[in-house]
Structure formats: structure tokens, C-alpha cells
Computed example of a mutant assay.
Amino acid sequence: MASPSPSPSTVGRKRSKILIKEPLNPSFADLTSCLLEVIMSHLVLKDNIRASVACTSWLEAAVSVSNDVFFFNPFSRELISLPKCELPFWEIAFSCPPTLDTCVLFALNRVMTHNVTLSTCRPGATEWITEEFPYDFEDLPSDYDQRYMHSKLVYVNDRFYCYIAGSLYYFHQSLRTWNFHYAYTLPCPYLHYKQQCEFVEKAVFLAEKEGEIFVVFTSGHEKPMVYKLGFFEWEEMSKPELDGLTIFVSFYNSEVRRDLPWMRNNVYFSRFGYNRKYCVSYSFDESKYIPPKVWQNWLQYCPTNSLWIDPPKNVLDYL
């Protein structure tokens, strides 16, 4: 006996169940990175910065299309534009807040065996001043790698200092001269060598506090080594000599504080990324990293997209 044919109403009900889908909820977060970069490339700088705080993917797209150098206050949202620097630079620093007329920007463009190229600029200027100084870097190895062999820049008493391949150099802003600081050479105690066809990465951080200059060496899981510049030599600082100092280091800047007793005798590294709720630090009091994890690569804790910011005392006024 043949089964009865389905009625039209039954077919309609079945078809309706098949055709009905869940409503779509499109989101800007679903945009591909290529499309985001196209959108960001059409924004002016101020709108680019505003869009970059939406989420991580927007931040990455905003940074990828922005080649300008500028001052930006994350608290007040004030933006100070600067002329485009024609030469790429490895390091850049400024002498004082850009709101002051005396502010000077200093960029270290290139360090070669027999010369150094640098650029300077002031807020409000229309172009950078680029100069090349002939200089013989006697301690510069033939396989010199600028990423690991020199430090960040610090400003002290009209001079921009940089530690290069074991020696301290400075650019005198008023005299516009490049010189060697006559302190004993301090080679990095962590040798830069190849192990199983890979370079062992290390980092050098230069910091300043109230006119005193410090250099910090880090490499692998070894403890950080801290030195302070004396009259004519570097003095290694042990636990008692640190005297409660707290040192914050990152790829772009380093800060030294004396007024943080609950963080005394520590070196803090700027960690960046998802699910990272705390920084990595080394405690000289306990002689260990916190959290206790083997450090294989300094870039894990000092990546290029992180830095330390000292917030203003009235930070709550900006919230």
C-alpha cells in the first residue's frame, strides 16, 4: 500500500524549517586585517589614534599605516605633530616636556665603524636637522648588530647619552658635538655568541635618575647586572648598594624610582600581550625572577610595543 503524499502545508512547514537561519550579528571586530589597514590609511592622524584604542586588531592596523613621529598625551589626548624624519632611526629621545620651548628631540639614525649619523628637531619646526660626525669606534666589532649592542638614549645636563659596544658616548646639544665619555670601558658581561646556529640575545638598558646614569644588562635567565657611572669608572651595584632603587626597563625607555618602598631592589620588565596580568621582575632581595620562570628571550618581556608611562599626579582628573 502506497504511503499518502504529504500535503502542501506539510511541505511548506518543512521547507520553512530548512530556510530559516539564525540572525547575523556583524561586528567591526570581524573585519580582516587587510580591510582594517585600508580603512586606517584614510584617517587623519588624530582619528587614527582614536581608532587605535578600540581593540588590539585596530591598534595593530593603525600602527601599520602610521609612519609619523609625534607627541601624544594619553591622559589629556593632546597631540603635537612633528615633521617627518627622512632617515630611519634606531633610537629617539627628548630633553623635556614638549610643551616647553626648550624641548629638543634627538634621533640616533645610524652607527657605523667610522661615523655616526643623528638628527635633531624641536616641536613646531618644519624639518629635522641631520648631521654626520666622523668618528672611529675602536671597540665596534665587525659583526656589530645595532639591535643588541647599544642602549636607549638618556638626557642629562644638555647631553644625550648612549651606551655603544662597551663605551658611553654623548651628543652635546648646545655645542653640537659628538664625544666619548672618559669612563673605563664596560663590555657587556653577557657575551654575544652563536649557539646552535642562533644568536644568544641580550639587552642593554641605560637609565637616569637625578643626574646619575645607570646601565642594566640582561640576558637569558641570568640575573640583571646594574652599574652606576662614577667619576671615571662604572661601579657594579650589589643589593646593599641599590639602597631601595626600583628600575623599570623596556624597549623604548627606562625609569628609576626611589620612592617605592614596596617594590625596592627590583628590576621590572614591561610585559605585553593577552592574559598577562602582571609584569616580570627580578628581586635582588630574593635573588630570583618573579614569577619563577626561565627567561629564554628578553624580547618576551621587553617587546617593541610596550613602554613605561609615569602618570601625572592628577591622573583622576582625566578619567
Rank of each mutant, 00 (worst) to 15 (best):
M1Q: 15
S5T: 12
V11E: 08
R13K: 11
R15H: 12
S16E: 06
K17A: 12
E22A: 14
L24N: 09
F28N: 12
A29D: 01
D30E: 04
L31K: 06
S33E: 04
L36P: 01
E37K: 08
I49V: 04
I49M: 09
A51Q: 07
L59D: 00
E60V: 13
E60H: 09
A62T: 07
S64N: 02
S66V: 02
F72E: 07
L82Y: 05
E86V: 06
W90M: 00
C96Q: 07
L100V: 00
T102G: 09
T102K: 10
C103L: 05
V111N: 07
V111R: 05
M112N: 05
H114G: 06
H114D: 15
N115S: 15
V116R: 06
L118D: 07
R122S: 02
R122C: 01
R122E: 01
P123V: 11
E127C: 01
P134T: 03
F137A: 10
F137T: 13
F137D: 08
S142L: 08
D143G: 08
D143Q: 11
Y148Q: 13
M149L: 04
S151W: 11
V154L: 03
Y155S: 03
Y161F: 13
S167C: 07
S167K: 08
S167G: 06
L168C: 02
R176E: 13
W178N: 02
N179R: 09
T185A: 11
P187F: 14
C188L: 10
C188I: 08
P189Y: 06
H192M: 04
Y193A: 02
K194L: 14
Q195I: 05
C197K: 01
F199M: 10
F205V: 06
K209L: 15
K209T: 07
I213H: 00
I213C: 04
I213Q: 01
V216N: 00
T218M: 14
T218Q: 15
T218C: 12
K223V: 04
V226Q: 03
K228G: 04
L229P: 06
E233H: 07
W234I: 03
E235N: 13
S238V: 01
P240T: 02
E241L: 06
E241C: 06
L242W: 04
T246G: 02
F248T: 08
S254I: 10
V256D: 00
R257N: 09
R257F: 13
R257W: 06
L260S: 07
P261E: 01
R264N: 06
Y268L: 10
F269P: 15
R271K: 14
R271W: 04
F272H: 10
N275T: 00
K277G: 14
K277P: 08
Y278G: 10
Y278P: 09
C279V: 05
S281H: 11
D285A: 01
D285G: 08
S287M: 11
I290H: 08
P291W: 04
V294H: 15
Q296W: 11
L299P: 15
N305I: 11
P312H: 03
V315K: 09
V315R: 12
L319A: 12
L319R: 09
